[in-house]
């Protein structure tokens, strides 16, 4: 298992908090869950972002979807979804995937409102995403732009977990195998509509429950540290 350095993350967060502004400071100052805690005792937030492209410096977030995980379950009461305002033309290559139109994007909430809400929801929790780099880097870029500091959060990436599991099982891996909607049938998870931020967040959260059960069948021995990136 890959060595983790949560203390490094905590130290970096402490240093960044000293320089950050507004909601980001509070987010960075919130205490993190103990990596040795049982997974069921930790609160996670599965997050998915739809964006205009894959470059966090040039591209923008268009919508977010999130669900919370606690006690080994996904209470849907915590489900959130929203559009983020974008006043330019959405590149066609992105629009055909998430099907968000220019008009819809223009009617979304300003990032200045969405980002504080996301930071508050994520404060003190673990980020869960499939190919989490996208979520991390877009939120990082937004935090630096708006609040002058980095977005630092303990993260679980279901893509990395699946990859790790496949390697352990000596499976030949192809990139397509690791896509969210190709992994789900392996665990008999239902087919959901892809590329809607909330559907994807929920799909990722369910996949994580399945992966966690396969990686460590005994819930008592399922510790947060086993799953962090």
């Amino acid at each position: 298992m890959k060595a983790l350095n949560p203390f490094g993350l905590t130290a970096r967060r402490r240093r960044a908090a000293a320089r950050a502004r507004g909601p980001l400071r509070d987010f960075l100052a919130a205490p993190l869950p103990d990596p040795s805690a049982p997974l069921e005792a930790v609160e996670l937030v599965a997050l998915d972002l739809e964006t205009t492209g894959l470059n966090p410096r040039r591209d923008r977030m268009l919508s977010y979807g999130l669900v919370e995980l606690r006690g080994g379950a996904i209470p849907l009461r915590g489900a959130r979804h929203g559009l983020i305002r974008f006043d330019h033309r959405i590149p066609e290559a992105a629009a055909v995937i998430h099907r968000i139109t220019d008009d819809q994007a223009a009617a979304g909430a300003p990032l200045e409102e969405v980002l504080p809400m996301l930071l508050e929801t994520l404060a003190g929790k673990v980020l869960l995403a499939h190919f989490a780099r996208v979520e991390q880097r877009f939120l990082d870029a937004a935090c630096r732009r708006l609040y002058g500091g980095p977005f630092l959060i303990p993260t679980i990436d279901t893509l990395r977990l699946a990859e790790r599991l496949f390697r352990l099982q000596n499976h030949a891996i192809q990139a397509a195998d690791l896509r969210l909607f190709n992994l789900r049938p392996r665990y008999k998870l239902p087919r959901y509509r892809a590329h809607n931020a909330l559907s994807d967040a929920l799909a990722c959260a369910e996949l994580f429950l399945a992966l966690a059960a396969e990686i460590q069948p005994d819930p008592a021995r399922r510790h947060l540290a086993h799953f962090l990136c």
């Binding site: 379950a73 996904i74 849907l76 009461r77 959260a205 429950l209 059960a213």
Partner: peptide, 11 residues
């Protein structure tokens, strides 16, 4: 109804 549900997974 959906928001009143919890989702769980059993291996």
């Amino acid at each position: 109804l959906p928001e009143q549900l919890e989702i769980r997974y059993l291996r």
